[in-house]
């Protein structure tokens, strides 16, 4: 996130959303991905936002990643962030079974309810595999869940950085394979999903105007 000058050009801009229960490590995962560090983080307030540039093949990508709070009190908030997301990452903690069961009880339903993108790519991520001894959810269960919901699946550790980059890269690969999503995210087109400057999407101006 530099200044406006020297801004690297990019071919695609994708919006990615991180959801899941409080404490499963969404923010840690993101921090691990964007700045290669691991830290004890306090619970996220509301939403956090980070940008990451990636190059996949020939394509330069800009990922705008929204990290939502898992805490119950912010639940109402996250609903408005689903719109327009090309990728959604559902995170659970492999050492806490409830965080896994809540995915089908709560989070998968939220996606169905709020996501505006039919083709949006979903990904299931089991975090904290470094704590293998405390594991409460088997990999098999994760795979089964992913198959049932039609989403990608990976197990990773934000702490040891195992599979962290793969998480995001696999997701992005899948998005790139989906034409409807790449069309939305293309930076050349006007349909920039974040572009909220209505100056470019509607032209109220002309209603003011004399025809020249």
């Amino acid at each position: 996130m530099g200044s406006s000058s020297g801004q690297p050009e990019f071919d695609y801009l994708f919006k990615v959303l991180l959801i899941g229960d409080s404490g499963v490590g969404k923010s840690s995962l993101l921090l691990s991905f964007t700045s290669n560090t691991f830290d004890d983080l306090s619970p996220t307030i509301g939403v956090d936002f980070k940008v990451k540039y990636l190059t996949i093949g020939e394509k330069k990508l800009k990922l705008a990643i929204w990290d939502t709070a898992g805490q119950e009190r912010f639940r109402t908030l996250t609903s408005s962030y689903y719109r327009g997301a090309q990728g959604i990452i559902m995170v659970y903690d492999v050492t806490r079974r409830d965080t896994f069961t809540n995915l089908s009880d709560i989070w998968a339903k939220e996606i169905d309810l709020y996501s505006t993108n039919q083709d949006c790519i979903k990904m299931l991520v089991g975090n904290k595999v470094d704590k293998e001894s405390e594991r409460a959810v088997t990999k098999k269960e994760g795979i089964d869940f992913a198959r049932e919901y039609g989403c990608l699946f990976l197990e990773c550790s934000a702490k040891t950085r195992v599979n962290v980059e793969q998480c995001f890269e696999e997701l992005v690969h899948k998005i790139l394979e989906t034409p409807s999503l790449t069309a939305e995210g293309s930076s050349g087109g006007k349909k920039n999903i974040f572009k909220q400057n209505p100056a470019q999407t509607s032209s109220a101006s002309s209603s003011y105007c004399c025809s020249s």
Partner: peptide, 27 residues
């Protein structure tokens, strides 16, 4: 209400606004 037709003038104006209001990035 947003106008239906995109005449050239407005097109120009838009690109101008884009320049002045935001750079290529979206954040």
């Amino acid at each position: 209400p947003a106008a239906k037709d995109d005449d050239e003038e407005c097109e120009n104006r838009r690109s101008e606004d884009r320049k002045s209001n935001s750079s290529s990035g979206d954040s």
